[in-house]
Design a protein around this nucleic acid. Sequence first.
DNA 1: CTCCTTAATGCGACTGATTCGCATTTGCAT
DNA 2: ATGCAAATGCGAATCAGTCGCATTAAGGAG
Lengths: 148, 148
Amino acid sequence: MEDKNRYRRMLKKENLRNTSHRQSILEALEASEEPVSAETLYLTLREKGISISISTVYRALDVLVEKDIVAKTDFTDNNKSLFEIKREEHRHHLVCVKCRKIIPVKECPFYEYAGELEERFGFSITGHKLEMYGYCQKCGGSPGKTGD
Amino acid sequence: MEDKNRYRRMLKKENLRNTSHRQSILEALEASEEPVSAETLYLTLREKGISISISTVYRALDVLVEKDIVAKTDFTDNNKSLFEIKREEHRHHLVCVKCRKIIPVKECPFYEYAGELEERFGFSITGHKLEMYGYCQKCGGSPGKTGD
DNA sequence: CTCCTTAATGCGACTGATTCGCATTTGCAT
DNA sequence: ATGCAAATGCGAATCAGTCGCATTAAGGAG
């Protein structure tokens, strides 16, 4: 499994021990197309037969976020934080306000805009998040209020 | 005070009673250039000598969000939700990852991009949030890691 | 202006996500 | 193989946010 070695290198580079739990967490995050909550991640791992505690999941996510390996999304699911592994290209999301489906989008048209803002505000932009809300194809027909 | 009447009308229109607490909350939100947490709002009001309980603040914010008078931002401050009054034009934000300063930005270049995505994913976009992270002028000199 | 209905509020208990302390285990450098 | 610091598990603790219920007050009717 070459991913295992990739993770080992990533962790090593950040002076983090290469534990089996961290490997599993990274694997699970990599496998997920959408951001997941700590709890979902925990349950996924348990289902795979991995014995891990929820606090370990939280702690691993914390340290991975700190080391910039994982991103904590800025939209939440029912007050639960969501996490996703940082991939080559960063992603944005279309979030369905009705069924909560999340569609990742790879394109990002912001660099130009960002540059302009940096000049105007003397602000050095290091990252950004863009989330779009609305109704997915399935829910599109009846845009009744459902939160935002 | 004409704002008072404006608020009264807004509340009435939504079948909400025009209570002094709601007036104070709307005033405080209007006065704030940045999104604030329920707790900050609560403390602000107490400082002004207004006797109010934290649950009233939460309940008022909830109902105002539901009625689309107030927006709950999708980025949080230390796990605390932030709220801002909806103004004419929606806003984006530059968030300093070091000092946590938030600069509102009025421009929004996304309509075109949004249209393209809608077509591609059959998704009906009703809103979006864009937050940019980096270092403000004051903190710009030393971009040491501080979160994202 | 007073009365009445019911929404709004205060207070304290409660919930649910996340964090923390501490004893135990495990990675990994030597 | 050994030792030590980092990582983990478990349960307790914390903290934002919610809820139940008794009390207060908005605002329409008379």
